[in-house]
């Protein structure tokens, strides 16, 4: 149960730092504004705009959440300590990933207030909203694993955050290629884009393919992270 031990340790460390609360407050301010706009401009009892906005904010927040996880330990020299400890590398990475994911879940938790407000004001389609939460958590998993990978590549926190943002934003904006053309390349790029798999969740549609997409992306990024650390251990 090394994974959960590491996850708990890292989560506790995260919760002990005021920085997390500032990031969370910023995140919730943004989602709150999106929520207010949904009600006052779109006039619909949905949270899809909130989730879409949250995902865009997350592109920048996720790498910041993960930037310290590995690069900080590398810089302070504790990474060597951990790497030589009787902990398998994949346990370390999985633990850190879970900590970051749970951390984001905690950041997102206060948005349940929006759902309660919607129930109070109107008759929202609750299963659709829950599907949106699921989609956002999957996007978060993918972006956090990207961030973790970036964090393993570089030993500087700032550089790994920048690299993570670049990864994530790159994978996101591929979605802008919706009408480049419908030839093979266009379809392939659209398939790679995060956006095109995320929007179905917002509309209340859960498809196996979309879940598989997020799972594969997250798994592969975590795998690469483990292998990079291994590689470091050897050289």
């Amino acid at each position: 149960m090394n994974i959960f031990f590491i996850a708990r340790r890292d989560l506790a460390a995260m919760l002990g730092r005021p920085a997390l609360y500032l990031i969370t407050a910023f995140f919730l301010l943004a989602t709150g504004l999106f929520f207010y706009l949904t009600l006052s401009i779109d006039r619909t009892a949905t949270l899809s705009r909130v989730f879409l906005g949250a995902a865009v904010v997350l592109l920048f927040v996720a790498p910041v959440l993960t930037m310290r996880l590995l690069s900080e330990e590398a810089r302070s020299g504790t990474l060597e300590l951990i790497l030589t400890a009787p902990v398998r590398t994949w346990e370390l990475v999985a633990g850190k990933f879970l900590a970051a994911w749970a951390g984001f879940g905690l950041m997102l938790a206060p948005t349940v207030v929006y759902l309660l407000l919607l129930v109070y004001l109107d008759r929202p389609d609750i299963p659709v909203i829950l599907s949106g939460y699921l989609g956002l958590m999957l996007v978060a998993a993918l972006l956090l694993s990207f961030g973790l990978l970036a964090s393993a590549v570089s030993s500087s926190a700032a550089a790994s955050a920048a690299l993570g943002i670049l990864f994530s934003a790159g994978a996101w904006v591929l979605g802008g290629l919706t009408l480049v053309s419908d030839n093979g390349i266009g379809r392939f790029l659209r398939y790679l884009a995060i956006q095109s798999h995320f929007v179905d969740f917002l509309d209340g549609l859960i498809s196996l393919n979309n879940v598989v997409y997020f799972f594969s992306g997250t798994f592969f990024a975590l795998y690469l992270t483990v292998q990079l650390l291994h590689y470091r251990r050897q050289v």
């Binding site: 609360y21 910023f26 919730l28 301010l29 709150g32 504004l33 929520f35 206060p110 948005t111 207030v113």
Partner: peptide, 11 residues
């Protein structure tokens, strides 16, 4: 609630 209270509580 959404724009003021929730972020403020977190801060």
């Amino acid at each position: 609630v959404a724009v003021l209270l929730v972020p403020l509580l977190v801060v």
